[in-house]
Nucleic acid binder design. Structure first.
Length: 608
RNA sequence: CGGGGAGUAGCGCAGCGGAAGCGCACCUGCUUUGGGUGCAGGAGGUCGGGGGUUCAAAUCCCCCCUCCCCGACCA
């Protein structure tokens, strides 16, 4: 049995804080600093103290074990990388300001790796020449660098962070699917072991490129992602990837929101333009419609959802060129910029500026209608999927102070296509089953991508196929935010007294407190510490002689080791207290049996 | 990128033209010893950085950096 020396708090490089740090808003950040796990070194960059480093290494260890178990092989790349491979795939420019760039003494460009698709692809190209070398999955656990616009929430979004990234290499789509599934399984095992709650949601691939992708989100309010899930059928997707339920034959499919009463094309009256002075916004338009006796609907008042709002944006492609884009959506919906960016990636989106309007006099701000939009008029026009053929709308007449009423999609105008970029709202219909979606926040702890051949093609990765002819390799990439997982675990387990680690990731199995000045207490606690060490139990031993029992109890709760053992006033009666940190429940255990008792309690979490 | 708030001892904060302070933490001594003991003494500061105004700047002005919150399109 390995002998793990106890960590003696009298000598531990640690200082706990009584007050919350003022700059920490998120609970996990607050407590990780207060309990002496991490300290901020620079914006979004953290130093790890002994306790924090132990937790990080434990999480790493679990991730590594599960990757190895799945048959993936560990490698290690530099963080400091040359420019060329990233130039070849276009990401030197695509990554924009998020890339940390630097130069060597000769002026050659380097970068600090934000992720390593290029390097892995090139290494495999170097080593693998035949289809017999595939399939292959390799991974690393490594420090990544991204110059985030706004680092926040401590470890949750840093500029330097630890990530496990894997890459799979296969001959064909079926192979990729198998590798993808293997990673999915390995991730499920990993997050189960880490004690993290998670939801697997459909995701967009963003700047990474590729097709299918899913995210593992820990459903916690501190997260930055919003996802929708369906309580009826289990559909779950990041809001960026939620498919809009298309209004179909049944009116009930629209239960979630928009009025279903759009006219059917057949009997709809002809569209007519009306003067609607002073109605540049949806609200003023709806008010005007309802105020006008001659325009009133027979069935119900006009609603924002009856109007078609046309929003203009400017796309900026990675090469710097721009393209104006018009998006038509129901007036009660806002355009979700994140969803839009996910749809148009790798292009970025900026607002349509005054100069852009000035150069297109045909566009009347506040009264833009389909009549001035569309590919034929020099501006691509995409509409929300709710704008189905046959639906009638009130929309701009391209003249100041005028709107068209009863404009029917498919009959009176035609868009260049549809786009899923409107905001998703709680209660919107599920695209699979129509039930109301539930929106929640989540922390992205893992992300798996089917990349396809994007990187292999850009970097020339092909192997000889069974017939001798070269076959371009198809790839997947898979990430786990290791340092982020530390924060997510903290976030999901903490309580009002402090941190509360699951045993496998905790810095110790047992937090042993010697409470009281009596020499017998210290002697007995020393022996318990030694006995447990002998058994391979990890012990954090509060042997401080100059600290009161109350301080030790508070520190133990703050630090969050799962089992707290108190050797103190009970010792005279032959008992020691064993407290469960999460529940606070206390057992009195005969002193003579304490070591055996604790070994039995901790064995499941025992690790070399 | 925009708006708001903030940056003073390790942490939390006060001071806002005229000697840099308080609480916690730290050091010394005593006290206390099961829920952040009490008393006394002590150490610790380029007042975020730079520039300016002034006899005098933590304090007023300008620029920059950093942190927190909200926002980012709303036609």
């Amino acid at each position: 049995m390995p002998n793990l020396p106890p960590i003696r708090m009298s000598a531990l490089f640690l200082r706990t804080l009584r007050d919350d740090p003022a700059d920490a808003d998120v609970a996990s950040h607050r407590l990780l600093v207060r309990a002496g796990y991490v300290r901020r070194a620079a914006p979004g960059i953290f130093s790890w103290l002994p306790l924090g480093w132990m937790v990080l290494r434990n999480v790493e260890g679990i991730v590594r074990e599960e990757m190895n178990r799945a048959g993936f092989q560990e490698v290690h790349f530099p963080a400091l990388l040359p420019r060329e491979p990233y130039e070849a795939t276009g990401r030197w420019s695509e990554y924009g300001d998020n890339l940390f760039r630097l130069q060597d003494r000769r002026g050659a460009d380097y970068l600090l790796g934000p992720t390593h698709e290029e390097m892995f692809t090139l290494l495999v190209k170097d080593i693998c020449t035949s289809y017999k070398d595939l399939p292959l999955s390799i991974y690393q656990i490594q420090t990544k660098y991204r110059d985030e616009a706004r680092p926040r929430a401590g470890l949750l979004r840093g500029r330097e962070f630890v990530m496990k990234d894997s890459y799979s290499f296969d001959l064909d789509r079926e192979g990729l699917q198998a590798s993808y599934d293997a990673h999915r399984e390995a991730y499920i095992r990993t997050f189960d072991r880490l004690g993290l709650p998670y939801v697997i949601v459909a995701a967009t691939s963003g700047a990474m490129g590729g097709s299918a992708s899913e995210e593992f989100l820990a459903p916690l309010d501190a997260g930055e992602d919003t996802f929708a899930s369906c309580p009826a059928c289990g559909y779950a997707a990041n809001t960026e990837a939620v498919r809009t339920a298309v209004p179909g034959g049944s009116a009930s499919a629209e239960a979630g929101g928009a009025p279903a009463a759009h006219a059917e094309a057949g009997g709809a009256p002809a569209a007519h333009a009306e003067d609607t002075p002073g109605t540049p916004t949806i609200q003023t338009l709806v008010d005007e419609l309802n105020a006008r006796v001659d325009l009133q609907r027979s069935d119900r008042p006009w609603a924002a959802a009856d109007t078609l709002k046309n929003v203009l944006v400017m796309l900026i492609r990675p090469d710097g060129t721009t393209e104006p884009l018009a998006i038509g959506l129901p007036g009660d919906r806002e355009l979700d910029l994140k969803r839009l960016e996910a749809q148009v990636a790798p292009a970025r989106v900026t607002a349509f500026g005054d100069a852009d309007f000035a150069s297109r006099p045909r566009l009347v701000k506040g009264y833009i209608g389909p009549g001035s939009l569309g590919q034929a008029r020099g501006m691509r026009y995409l509409v929300d999927p709710r704008v189905v053929d046959g639906s009638a709308w009130v929309t701009g007449a391209d003249v100041a102070g005028r709107h068209v009423i009863g404009l029917v999609a498919g009959r009176d105008f035609r868009a260049d296509g549809t786009i899923d970029a409107a905001e998703v709202r709680d209660g919107d219909p599920c695209p699979e089953c129509g039930a109301g979606l539930v929106l929640r926040r989540g922390i992205e702890i893992g992300h798996i991508f089917q990349l396809g051949s994007k990187y292999a093609e850009a970097l020339g990765l092909a192997v000889a196929g069974p017939g001798g002819r070269p076959v371009v390799v198809t790839m997947g990439s898979y990430g786990i935010g290791v340092s982020r997982a530390v924060a997510a675990i903290a976030e999901s387990t903490l309580d009002d007294r402090g941190l509360c680690w699951p045993r496998e990731v905790a810095p110790a199995d047992v937090h042993l407190v010697a409470a009281g000045k009596d020499r017998s207490v210290a002697e007995f606690a020393d022996r318990v510490a030694a006995d447990l060490s002998q058994e391979g139990i990890r012990v954090l031993y509060d042997d401080r002689s100059d600290v009161s029992a109350g301080v030790k109890f508070k520190d133990a709760e703050l630090i969050g080791v799962p089992t707290v053992v108190v050797v103190g006033k009970g010792l005279a009666g032959g008992v020691v207290e064993v407290r469960d940190r999460p529940s606070g429940a206390t057992d009195l255990v005969p002193a003579a049996e304490i070591a055996r008792h604790l070994v039995a309690l901790c064995r499941p979490g025992l690790r070399v």
